[in-house]
């Protein structure tokens, strides 16, 4: 049975799109059939992070408005045959997204895929609400920083009140994904600790993604970090998070970079 997962946060720039691409690719690597949907109308970037920006012909709004069929708008990943992308429109008005239209698309995708990952835009406006509207579970991406945690708390309130599940009186399962975590700064008391964040948001932890230049390197070349360098610290953290999503019990750790002698000597590598 298909599962609809919304990747959301409230605050912008915390890593929603990066996390959607990384989780989607990691799920597809396990053999699951996955589609990632970009709900950020006007500011789409999931196509860029996935390296499919030149292949976009039709988009989500074209499908909602009946200009194109769903099969025409879906883009198959070139590296993983069971990973698909449904891009957002870059130019159209976000009011073109309708509740009914999105509901029909999600219902159609449920019959074709195992996992449907909805990449939410920042904010609490129409796009963000529609991204979470039909979700079964939510991944709340947050940085260990006050404004990000505050906005995540607001989003949790919306997940509990504005989704179809909430309207039916069902409980929406939520997972916290902490990104850009710096172990050294946290241990010096310069960054909110994991315990602090979890106590404030009162939701279970899905994973801790360490701050790493590998994330930027991967987006530079248009590849989800889990595909670009599977042994890097963030890739391992995302892979563990996916295993938890699939019901496995995986010990929670903060992966650290394994630096070779050459990397240590040269400091960094260019993408």
């Amino acid at each position: 049975m298909a599962k609809v997962l919304v990747v959301t946060s409230g605050k912008g720039g915390v890593g929603k799109t990066t996390s959607t691409a990384a989780l989607g690719a990691a799920l597809a690597q396990t053999g699951e059939k996955v589609v990632v949907i970009d709900f950020d109308v006007g500011l789409r970037n999931l196509d860029l992070v996935m390296g499919a920006e030149r292949r976009v012909v039709f988009d989500l709004i074209n499908v909602v408005q009946g200009v194109a069929k769903l099969s025409q708008a879906l883009i198959r990943d070139k590296r993983l045959e069971n990973l698909w992308l449904l891009p957002a429109s870059q130019t159209r008005d976000k009011d073109a997204l309708t509740d009914e239209g999105v509901g029909n698309i999600i219902a159609d995708l449920r019959t074709k895929f195992d996992w449907i990952l909805c990449d939410s835009p920042a904010g609490v406006e129409r796009g963000a609400l529609l991204a979470m509207r039909y979700a079964d579970e939510a991944v709340i991406v947050t940085n260990p920083e006050v404004s990000s945690v505050r906005d995540s708390d607001r989003i949790i309130g919306m997940l509990d009140s504005k989704t179809v599940k909430a309207e039916r009186g069902e409980r929406m399962e939520k997972h916290i994904l902490i990104t850009r975590y710096d172990l050294a700064r946290a241990s010096r008391g310069e960054m909110l600790s994991i315990d602090d964040i979890l106590e404030i948001l009162a939701a279970p932890l899905l994973g801790i993604i360490p701050e790493s230049q590998e994330v930027l390197l991967a987006s530079n070349v248009g590849s989800p970090v889990t595909l670009n360098n599977a042994v890097s610290a963030p890739a391992r953290a995302y892979t563990d998070a996916v295993r938890r999503l699939m019901g496995e019990t995986v010990t929670m750790t903060v992966p650290v970079e394994r630096k070779g002698l050459m990397n240590r000597l040269l400091g960094r590598r260019a993408a």
């Binding site: 920083e145 006050v146 310069e190 404030i200």
Partner: peptide, 10 residues
């Protein structure tokens, strides 16, 4: 350490 301050404010 500023984290305890952040926690209290939040």
């Amino acid at each position: 350490a500023s984290a305890p301050v952040a926690r209290e404010r939040l």
